[in-house]
Nucleic acid binder design. Structure first.
Lengths: 339, 339
DNA sequence: GGCAATGATGTTAGCGCTAACAAAAGCGCG
DNA sequence: CGCGCTTTTGTTAGCGCTAACATCATTGCC
C-alpha cells in the first residue's frame, strides 16, 4: 500500500512567518490579534498588514493547546429534525458568534446512551462549556460533566436544584392549554403523546393536574406512544382515540406535528372542529397558523431560550455568575380556530 | 480587576499519565488508541484498562497539532431553519460519525459575504474538507478554498466543470413539475418565487423552458421576491398574483412553504383547488402530504445527498478519487390532490 | 547457528501557539 | 535629573500529542 503524502493543512503560514514579515516577535502578533489594546497602534498596523499580505489564519488547535481555552461550546440537542431545537440553535449561534465562540452540535436522537457517547466524543475538543436540552440525563453523563468541571446550562425546562437553567414550566404550559379547553366547555379532553421524552411527560402531568382540578380527569382518554412523533402518527392516533372513545370532545396533542396530522384526519373524516372535537397542539410551529382550521397551540420562546442560555453559559465560562440561575421565559397560548 | 484562576480544561489526565499507569511509553498508548492492530493484545488491554481507570479523554487539539489532521469536516448551509438542509445534515452526520470525523456547521443565512466570513473563521480549525451547498460562491471564497487546498464537495446541484458534486438537476425538476401541470390541461401557469437563491432561479428557468416548449410562456405570470420564503409570504403572493392575473389557472411555487401558504389562502377565499387553480410546491416537506388539499410537489433526495456527499469527501480526504465526480440522485414527482 | 526480515516498543523532536516572567522604554514629578 | 511607575515588547518554556526514526525481540530459513 502506497503511503499518502502528508501535507500540512492550512495555507502553511504560521504566526512566526507573520512576525518575521512584520519585524516583530511572535508574541506581539498574538497580542495584536487577541488583545489589540496592549499593542501600540504602529505595530498593530504593521502586524495586520503582514497578516493580510500572507493570508495568515491562526490555528485554533495550537491556541487551545497553549491557552487551555478552546472558545468552543458544546450544544446537545435531542433531534435535528425538529424545528423547535433549530430555533434554539439559531439563537445560540448569534450570541456565540458575537463572542468569538464556536458551537459544536451533537444530536442525541432522544437517546440517553447516545448522549453519553456524544459527550465523550466531543470532550476531545475540550469545550469550555455545555448547553443541554432537558434536565434529566444518564448518571454517568452527569458524572462526566462534573469530572471535567464543565459549566453547563440546561435549556427548555426549569430546575430547582441550583443548576443553571433557562426555559419555562412544561407542566404549567400543559395545564394552561388544558384549562383553555375546559373554558371552551369541553369535558372529555384527551391527550395524544408521542416520543414521551421528559418534556412531553411534564406536559401530560400538567394536563392531568388541570383536569383533576376540574374534576374530570379520565385515564382512559390518554394515548401514549414512545415512537417519534410525526403528522402520520397524529392521524393514526386520532383514529385510535375516536374508535376507543367516541365521546371524546377535545384533544391536547403533545406537539404540533401530532396536532396537524390529527386535524388533517378530521378534515378527511368530516369531523367538525372545534364543535364536535376541539384540537390543541404545542410549540406553535409555522404551519400551525396555516392548517385548516388554524391550530390553537402554545407558543414557546425557543429562540430566546437559546440566546439567554448562551449568555448565561458565557458568563459562567468567564467565571462570573449567570444573570439568573433559573430563568423562566414563560409561554403564550395561541388561540385559533381549532378550539 | 481580579484575575480569574486558570484551570486546565479536561479532567487533566494526559496520555503520559495513562502511559505511566500502564507501564508503557506514551507512543504505545497513542497506537493502542489509534492503530490498535500495531500493538500486542497484552499491552493493548493494559492500556485500555488504564484509560478506563483514569477516565482519559484524548485531546483533539494536541492530536491535530501533531498530526496535521483534524478529523473535522466543515459543512456550510444557507439556513438552519429549513428542513431541507437538516435532512442533509442528518445524512452527513451518520457517515462522518461512523468514520470518527466530526462536523462543524456554518450557517450562511443565504449570504455570500457571511459565507466567506464563516469559511475564514472555521479555517482556524483546519478542517480536512468542506461540504458546500450550491455551486456558486464568492470569488474570494473559491480562492481561499484553493489556497488551503481543501477538498470540497458541492451539494444539491450538478456542476459540469470537474468539481465533485452530489445532487440533482434543479432545472430538470422545475421543468418536470411544470410539464405535469401542462398535462393536467393548465395553460396559464404562474411561478411564485422567494429567496431567489441559485436553486430557485434554476427551477424558474426549468419552468420557463417547459412552458416555452409548450408555447405558453408568459413573463407576466412570474412573481419573484428576494425576501426569505414563509407560509405567510405564500399567502400574500397568492393574493398579489390573483389580483394581477385572475386568469392564472395553476401555480408552481418554488418551495413547499410558499405553496402551503398559498393553499391555505385558497381555502380561506373559497378558491377551488385544483379545478380553478392547481398548486404545486417543491421539496416534499412532511406537511405537504397533510395540508388541504394534499400538495403536489417534488420529492428531493436530501438525506441521500448528505450521505453520498460525505462519502465522497471522505474518499477525497484519504487521497482517493470519489466514487463519482458528478452524482445525480434524481428527484420524484409526488402527485397529490392539489393538482 | 547466523543472518535478514518482520514486528513490537521506545526515543526524540517539534507541531503553532500563549502564560509567565523579564526587560526595556516612556512618563510624571519633585 | 533621577526615582518609581506604567506601558510596550521580548524571551523562555511547555501545552499534549504523533511522525520519523531507532532499538530490541522474534521468527524463518538455509
Amino acid at each position: 500500500m502506497s503511503r499518502k503524502p502528508r501535507v500540512r493543512s492550512g495555507s502553511g503560514v504560521t504566526m512566526h512567518d507573520v512576525a518575521r514579515a512584520a519585524g516583530v516577535s511572535a508574541i506581539t502578533v498574538s497580542r495584536a490579534l487577541n488583545q489589540p489594546q496592549q499593542v501600540s497602534p504602529a505595530l498593530r498596523d504593521k502586524v495586520m498588514q503582514a497578516v493580510d499580505a500572507l493570508g495568515y489564519v491562526p490555528s485554533r488547535s495550537a491556541s487551545t493547546l497553549a491557552s487551555a481555552r478552546s472558545r468552543t461550546v458544546l450544544v446537545l440537542i435531542p433531534s435535528l429534525g425538529n424545528t423547535v431545537f433549530l430555533d434554539t440553535l439559531a439563537g445560540i449561534e448569534t450570541v456565540l458568534a458575537e463572542a468569538g465562540y464556536q458551537m459544536l452540535i451533537g444530536n442525541s436522537h432522544y437517546d440517553a446512551e447516545q448522549e453519553l457517547q456524544l459527550l465523550r466524543a466531543y470532550l476531545q475538543h475540550r469545550p469550555d462549556g455545555v448547553l443541554l436540552t432537558g434536565l434529566s440525563h444518564a448518571a454517568p453523563f452527569d458524572a462526566l460533566l462534573r469530572r471535567h468541571r464543565l459549566p453547563a446550562v440546561y435549556m427548555m425546562d426549569l430546575a430547582d436544584d441550583g443548576r443553571c437553567c433557562v426555559g419555562f414550566s412544561q407542566e404549567e404550559a400543559g395545564a394552561a392549554i388544558t384549562r383553555h379547553l375546559l373554558e371552551r366547555g369541553k369535558r372529555r379532553i384527551g391527550f395524544l403523546g408521542a416520543q414521551l421524552d421528559e418534556r412531553v411527560m411534564k406536559r401530560l402531568s400538567g394536563y392531568r393536574a388541570a383536569l383533576a382540578e376540574a374534576g374530570c380527569h379520565d385515564a382512559g382518554l390518554e394515548w401514549l406512544d414512545p415512537a417519534p412523533s410525526s403528522m402520520q402518527m397524529g392521524a393514526d392516533m386520532l383514529d385510535r382515540a375516536l374508535a376507543a372513545r367516541p365521546d371524546c370532545d377535545a384533544l391536547f396533542c403533545c406537539n404540533d406535528d401530532l396536532a396537524i396530522g390529527a386535524l388533517a384526519r378530521c378534515q378527511q373524516l368530516g369531523i367538525a372542529v372545534p364543535a364536535r372535537l376541539a384540537v390543541a397542539g404545542f410549540n406553535d410551529l409555522q404551519a400551525a397558523a396555516w392548517c385548516t382550521p388554524a391550530l390553537t397551540t402554545v407558543a414557546t420562546p425557543r429562540r430566546e431560550i437559546g440566546i439567554q442560555a448562551a449568555r448565561s453559559l458565557l458568563a459562567m465560562i468567564e467565571g462570573d455568575a449567570p444573570q439568573a440561575l433559573r430563568l423562566d421565559l414563560g409561554f403564550a397560548l395561541m388561540l385559533r380556530r381549532s378550539s
